[in-house]
């Protein structure tokens, strides 16, 4: 009997998910394109970049610094057995630029800014502010959603570049003064093995993709939340969980595509 119930359930889920994805895509596109709408305000955009980007800066810098330092210790531990500590700089730089920088930035951003975004939009919906805007012929996509989406898309690559740099600096502080790796070798090996377009820009491109995905999911979960106190809470949780899992999955696909 359970089997018999499972099959229509599967069909129902599919029928819900596939058009849902379509509606979410239309939501993303029309929000992004509403920069041309007269209700889009650059002042709002700057306010959101301040909220998402500038105020996440301290979290990112601390996280990056510790990530880099741990990479230094751990990489040294693995490499010293083969007498290959000269490759430590390359190891730290490539790990940060290609994987850890974009992914950790996106995960932290989903927790720090994505959750706030979902909670804000969903409680606006719960208190019928979005409906009120429509009553006043103000497009809520242009006034509320678009500045937040664009702010996320602009902030994440910038945060990622700062994360990479601080992380490498943290790794340097552990490798060279603490563990005694030669400073010249550290930078020279890094420079001869890291390419600008292949590693640095591709990593930032990844961060850009994650920025789109995280803010899209956060805004969409907020916009479709049930307009109750419980609905707001559920939407916020779901936003962080879905965004984090999507970032991890997308990272695998992007790594396979970009670095193969």
């Amino acid at each position: 009997m359970a089997m018999l119930e499972f099959i229509p359930q599967l069909g129902r889920r599919t029928l819900q998910t596939v058009p849902g994805l379509g509606v979410a895509s239309r939501f993303l596109l029309s929000s992004l394109l509403s920069v041309f709408n007269r209700h889009f305000s650059f002042q709002q955009l700057f306010r959101q970049i301040y909220g998402f980007g500038v105020r996440s800066l301290i979290l990112m810098v601390v996280a990056a610094f510790f990530t880099g330092m741990v990479l230094g210790f751990q990489g040294y531990y693995a490499l010293v057995r083969f007498g290959a500590t000269s490759a430590l700089g390359t190891l730290i730089a490539l790990s940060l630029l290609r994987e850890l920088g974009p992914v950790l930035t996106a995960l932290l951003f989903a927790g720090r800014a994505g959750s706030a975004l979902t909670a804000e939009i969903s409680s606006m919906k719960a208190t019928e502010q979005l409906s009120a805007m429509e009553m006043m012929a103000v497009n809520p996509l242009a006034w509320v959603v678009a500045p937040r989406l664009w702010a996320g898309i602009i902030s994440v690559p910038i945060l990622c570049a700062i994360f990479d740099l601080v992380g490498i600096f943290g790794g340097y502080l552990i490798s060279v003064p603490v563990l005694g790796v030669d400073g010249g070798t550290f930078w020279a090996q890094m420079q001869s093995n890291v390419t600008f377009s292949g590693d640095i820009l591709t990593g930032l491109f990844k961060a850009l993709c994650f920025g789109v995905v995280v803010t899209w999911i956060a805004a969409w979960k907020g916009y479709t939340a049930r307009p109750t106190a419980e609905g707001v809470g559920n939407a916020t949780t779901l936003s962080v969980v879905t965004a984090s899992l999507t970032v991890l999955g997308l990272d695998f696909i992007l790594t396979a595509l970009l670095f193969s």
């Binding site: 630029l97 740099l165 420079q191 390419t195 590693d199």
Partner: peptide, 9 residues
């Protein structure tokens, strides 16, 4: 800084 110091542009 990444481009000049790390990527050796």
């Amino acid at each position: 800084v990444l481009a000049l110091r790390v990527g050796n542009l």
